[in-house]
Design a protein around this nucleic acid. Structure first.
Length: 494
RNA sequence: GACCGGUUCGUCUAGGGGUUAGGACACCGCCCUUUCACGGCGGCAACACGGGUUCAAAUCCCGUACCGGUUACCA
């Protein structure tokens, strides 16, 4: 049997990191087994679902490179079938009409109300009088136009059992599961019914999802049984938590939770995918960097963790705004990935910063590649190419005040010396590292100063920042013309 | 409250009866160097607690604590 898995987000917001990881694991499992990775948008909650959210989810998956194998399924398209199946269960006596009037709850307090109600009484799940209402009366009241919800009739005794690929054997007494509502009194199908029906229709073989669904799974198994269908294999994933071990939510934690944040912050998709893969799973070896192919090859459900993982970031520290390891991994990718794969990413970053010039792919292609290869070693994100690296692509770059203070202001002599150094460069035929080195050393000696003072002064003037690769490489990469011009410029001093 | 699940360095994790409990990130130190957030070397740092079982427990069993999930006519 061919493996068919699905990622089934509800389009009520951005793509959450936990959801993105679930999508990734589904994808890896499908690819590893030669199966299909499907996508279903669970938009049955019309009030909260938005097209904007659907688009953002699709974009996020695309960015991570998780392409689905078949057409996207929109759950709302199946609403009619969901209703029909609920009615079928009703007709078969496996479900019953509940004429209890719907409780009006204000959206905000629902959660609290539920918890409150639940903790008060240890309620009997089978005491609903409509559960045992005579069919004739039920039919009559329905015919009379009285509104009703359809509930699944869960047996009094017994238990649901399934073997979870991650958490092992799971059992739950029927008495702990309520007669769940399948169809709302307004005819709207509910989540558990819709999911089961769609998973059957899509011929899903493995359901891989967050462990917040662990109790839903018991309910869903009941529906599978009522429908006479064989449940798929289940694998539940640990959750991704905030540093305080609480829920990671946009409301509380803001943009760090959203996948698109990372795209917009200049992350390399492969790097972030790599990071996500390792948050809750490991191949059991001392290795951190995995290509997509390696992940596909090594992934296995039984190496998924059972404990939740903390996504470690410090809200108020810009230096650690996201998980350090994610940032490190991105830097690692930037400096170690094949230059050919990095170039297009840098190109689009420069384009969006209006720093891109077509010559970089044409006459100046060689220069461009060398420059990128030179500066990438100290960068963390693609943004650094247009920010810290700006001086390589534009004359219009800023000077870091700290760099000026440290490397220029402290040595007033440099104000005259650096233009003089430019004069020294002027007649040079060949402007490559060895010649530059000889010139700078001779100049520094004449002035009776230290090499570091000249070099760092020049660095600040030429690049605007205090950090970077070897200054000799910088001179050579920038070229004689720009070097001279910038050494003579006085803007940094003003 | 009830049901379910979890607990190895600050974080991600390896290990699953006998290990100096390994790696990565972060942090700190030293080295390299014209600077540095590159690189090299090193350091700090963990088996939640209590009982069992066993010659031997981080590892198996029970309990406790703590954390998380669920408990909707949300998904």
């Amino acid at each position: 049997m061919t493996v068919r898995v699905r990622f089934a987000p509800s389009p009520t917001g951005y793509l959450h990191l936990g959801a993105a990881r679930a999508a990734l694991y589904n994808y890896l499992y499908a690819k590893q087994t030669g199966g299909k990775f499907l996508l279903r948008i669970e938009d049955t909650d019309l009030a909260r679902s938005t097209a904007e959210s659907t688009r953002s989810i699709l974009e996020g998956l695309d960015w991570l490179g998780l392409h689905h194998d078949e057409e996207v399924v929109f759950q709302s398209d199946n609403a009619e079938k969901h209703r029909a199946i609920a009615k079928k269960l009703l007709a078969e006596g496996k479900a019953y009409r509940d004429f209890t009037p719907k409780e009006e709850t204000s959206d905000k307090t629902v959660k609290e109300a539920i918890v409150e109600r639940a903790r008060k009484v240890d309620k009997n799940m089978r005491d609903n009088p409509y559960r045992v209402l005579a069919v004739e009366e039920s039919d009559a009241r329905a015919a009379n136009g009285e509104p009703f919800a359809i509930r699944l009739k869960v047996a009094e005794t017994g238990k649901t059992v399934f073997e979870d690929e991650v958490y092992g054997l799971q059992e739950r007494e029927y008495s702990d599961t309520e007669d769940l509502v399948l169809l709302r009194s307004d005819g709207h199908p509910l989540y558990n019914l819709a999911v089961v029906y769609d998973d059957i229709e899509m011929e899903i073989t493995h359901v891989i999802r967050g462990q917040d669904h662990l109790t839903n799974t018991h309910k869903q198994i009941l529906i599978y049984q009522a429908l006479g269908a064989t449940p798929p294999t289940f694998a539940h994933l640990p959750l991704i938590l905030a540093p305080n071990k609480g829920k990671l939510s946009k409301r509380k934690h803001g943009e760090v939770v959203s996948l698109t944040t990372y795209r917009d912050a200049g992350f390399i998709p492969a790097a972030f995918r790599n990071f996500l893969a390792l948050l809750g799973w490991s191949a059991g070896e001392e290795k951190e960097i995995y290509s997509l192919d390696e992940l596909i090859k090594r992934f296995s459900l039984d190496h998924i963790h059972r404990s939740n993982a903390v996504f470690n970031f410090q809200e108020h520290d810009p230096r650690h705004w996201t998980d350090d390891k994610a940032m490190w991994m991105n830097a690692e990718y930037i400096r170690a990935m094949p230059l050919g794969e990095l170039l297009p990413l840098v190109k689009s970053e420069l384009k969006s910063s209006k720093l891109w010039r077509e010559e970089y792919e044409d006459d100046e292609r060689e220069w461009f590649e060398r420059a990128i290869d030179l500066i990438r070693h100290r960068f963390f994100t693609l943004k650094d190419f247009s920010a810290q690296g700006r001086a390589y692509f534009s004359e219009d770059y800023d000077f870091d005040p700290a760099a000026i203070a440290k490397n220029l202001a402290k040595f007033p002599d440099l104000r005259d010396w650096l233009p003089e150094l430019a004069d020294r460069f002027e007649p040079m035929e060949s402007f490559t590292e060895p010649e530059i080195e000889t010139a700078v050393k001779a100049f520094t000696e004449e002035k009776g100063t230290k090499l570091g003072i000249t070099m760092n002064g020049a660095r600040t003037l030429l690049t605007g920042v205090a950090v970077g690769p070897s200054m000799l490489s910088v001179f050579e990469t920038l070229g004689k013309e720009k070097t001279i011009m910038r050494l003579r410029s006085q803007v940094a001093w003003n």
